[in-house]
Design a protein around this nucleic acid. Structure first.
Length: 612
RNA sequence: CGGGGCGUGGCGCAGCCUGGUAGCGCACCUGCCUUGGGCGCAGGGGGUCGUUGGUUCAAAUCCAAUCGCCCCGACCA
């Protein structure tokens, strides 16, 4: 797109933010005239906003193509038939917007396209010779979110890049996965974003088969843990805790470990802090016990992927066999927080949740708050740090009583010791020797996921292998929230005056502000602006000239709001010396240059920033 | 879906409690003025007060229903 005159472009900037907007990206997109709301979670993209979207899309396209993926386009409106085949027509919740055509046939608006792509490949791919295959599209998705919010961050209608890989076996699929993983890194780097690839909850498929790409931003909805020494990063649910060198936790107890356990009356004190204060002990001398209900518990079938988190979307889970429910105790040290998800993964269960008060009372024969591993008739799963205590205090399984001087092995037997707590800042890294975990807030902009044969099996999508046998495709799926990526760039890069776009996805590269009104001396500034516009455009730089008859203050404020990376001001000051003023949006100071010099410099800077 | 809040010119808000002919700032239009950080002066246009029903001589205001939007919780790119 050629250079543009601001007077001809629809950029309705706002001095004040509409009350509906809460987060920075939403406020600034609205104020900068880039988007407007049409309905809850549904937006118009105005010219400036749309240009930024197209920039992100183009980067994605280039990197996907470079990684060997092929662009296709699938329908927004998808037949229920396919969804019935995969089983998701009934399993997917109200998030799936369903509709009927005039003949009363069921359709849905595609929230994702596994079904459609599997049907497409199933229809025309027969042989292992045609694999591997990776198909992607950049397309509008619709998910009828319970609560759309934060503008583009969580809309109902949004633009997404989704890719699907088809391979002959898991090893080949992992190659595809790695290619996508690398491509995603390249994409977000090119978008100028600070991000982390974090391990996500994958069920029991394996450590490397699901990663979220999180843009680091204070306002992020997700909490992630990352090592300060190596590249390890994981979301809060998944973050593993490394082994500690030695245990010094209960040194203060000295020879008390020989003492017999002793029941202490703790009337009405059910919380660890309360009991600790009451007994004059510290929370870290306690073992906190949660009674949990483990549903869909099943013995793991060897080597077979068990249902991952995607099952929550009603995806086929690829497993069969009976499941059952049981109660169990989950023990962590008093100052730690239990992580039921880790127990879920450890046991390969469908869900692990807190037991009801009645269940707790039935299992412990005591009021809620007095559970403990001593004398408890349930499987006891103990976190490493809790198990490392030489002696500990815990609930006595009697109302209003705790028991102290407990020793593992003597007084209570762990069924299994494992990493079962939520990571905390400063915990040792599970991956490297000297790293420690730090927390960050993140915005999930991408997700790569190994799917296996869940869909191909459910929908009977098979190829013929070298031996002439049918086998289901082994798949992976890879998503990027395009519009969310754009919003996250703003969350990550803005100041009190407005957006600070990374060069690569900015709607234009440079703003030229002729500051004098078009009459009188203004004719000169306008002429210089036009001349620079032509010269820059010839060098592939995208220029927006603010040719409006406005006061300088208005142009400056608007330019800051819109946030183009470079700004050229031409006014009385600069006219006297025959120079123009060039300034980075991200910096305070400006530099004076002759117009031709400025053109060359800008063209070089833009080229440098865009071509990575 | 549960809890909280809000619907008054394009945007931000006041008025509502205590009914009595709808107001402010910004934006917009015209003229003059001004021209390096949302300038000044003067004039002007625009709102069936979310919708429906009720109470009343009279409803933005009181009552009921309904729709929409925002915030907090369980889901996701």
């Amino acid at each position: 797109m050629p250079a543009m005159k601001r007077s001809q472009l629809l950029v309705p900037t706002l001095k004040e933010a509409p009350a509906e907007a809460q987060v920075v990206s939403h406020i600034l997109l609205l104020r900068a005239g880039m988007i407007r709301k049409v309905a809850a979670g549904i937006y118009n993209f105005l010219p400036l906003g749309w240009r930024a979207v197209r920039k992100v899309e183009q980067i994605i396209r280039e990197e996907m193509n470079r990684a060997g993926a092929q662009e296709v386009h699938m329908p927004v409106v998808c037949p229920a038939e396919l969804w019935q085949e995969s089983g998701r027509w009934t399993k997917y919740g109200p998030e799936l917007l369903r509709l009927k055509d005039r003949k009363d046939t069921d359709f849905c608006l595609g929230p994702t396209h596994e079904e459609v792509v599997v049907a497409m490949v199933r229809a025309d791919v027969r042989s292992y010779r045609e694999l591997p295959l990776n198909l992607y599209q950049i397309q509008t998705k619709f998910r009828d979110e319970i609560r759309p919010r934060f503008g583009l961050m969580r809309g109902r209608e949004f633009i997404m890049k989704d890719a699907y890989s088809f391979d002959v076996d898991q090893a080949a699929a992992m190659v595809a996965y790695q290619k996508m993983f690398d491509a995603y890194g390249a994409i977000f780097r090119r978008c100028g974003l600070e991000f982390r690839a974090v391990e996500a909850d994958t069920g029991n498929i394996g450590g490397s088969s699901s990663h979220e790409f999180q843009v680091l931003a204070e306002s992020g909805e997700d909490l992630i843990f990352a090592c300060d020494a190596c590249t390890y990063a994981a979301n809060a649910e998944k973050a593993a805790v490394g082994k500690r060198g030695e245990t010094t936790e209960s040194q203060s107890f000295g020879d008390q470990r020989r003492k017999e356990k002793e029941v202490v009356a703790t009337p009405g004190k059910g919380k660890v802090e309360e009991v600790a204060a009451f007994m004059g002990a510290s929370a870290r001398e306690f073992v906190k016990t949660l009674i949990v209900r483990v549903d869909e518990f099943r013995e793991r079938s060897a080597g077979k992927p068990v249902a991952g988190p995607r099952e929550r979307n009603g995806e086929p889970d690829g497993t069969e066999g009976a499941t059952h429910t049981m109660l169990a105790a989950l023990c962590v040290r008093g100052d730690h927080e239990a992580n039921p998800v880790k127990l879920k993964l450890l046991l390969g269960a469908g869900t692990v949740e807190l037991a009801s008060d009645e269940e707790v009372t039935r299992a412990t024969h005591a009021a809620v708050g007095f559970a403990g591993p001593v004398g408890l008739d349930l499987p006891v799963y103990v976190d490493h740090d809790a198990a490392a205590l030489e002696t500990f205090i815990s609930g006595a399984n009697q109302t209003d009583a705790h028991v102290k001087n407990c020793v593992w092995g003597r007084d209570a037997k762990p069924t299994q010791v494992a990493d079962l707590r939520v990571a905390a800042v400063g915990d040792p890294c599970p991956r490297c020797a000297d790293g420690h975990l730090k927390t960050h807030r993140g915005i999930e902009v991408g997700h790569v996921f190994y799917l296996g044969d869940k869909y191909s099996r459910a929908m009977n999508a098979v190829y013929q292998d070298a031996g002439g046998n049918d086998a289901p495709f082994v798949m992976g799926c890879y998503g990027i929230g395009v519009t969310r990526t754009m919003a996250s760039a703003i969350e990550q890069s803005h100041d009190k005056d407005g957006i600070v776009w990374p060069m690569s996805i900015a709607p234009f590269h440079v703003a030229i502000l002729p500051l004098l009104s078009p009459t009188g001396d203004g004719a000169k500034t306008a002429a210089i602006a036009d001349e620079m516009e032509r010269a820059l455009e010839a060098r592939g730089v995208e220029v927006l000239v603010d040719d409006r008859d406005e006061r300088p203050g208005v142009k400056f404020k608007d330019a800051d709001l819109i946030g183009l990376p470079l700004r050229v001001s031409i006014g009385k000051k600069t006219l006297e010396t025959g120079k123009v003023e060039v300034k980075w949006r991200s910096q305070k100071e400006a530099v004076l240059m002759a117009p031709e010099e400025a053109v060359a410099w800008i063209a070089a800077e833009v080229a440098k920033a865009v071509e990575i």
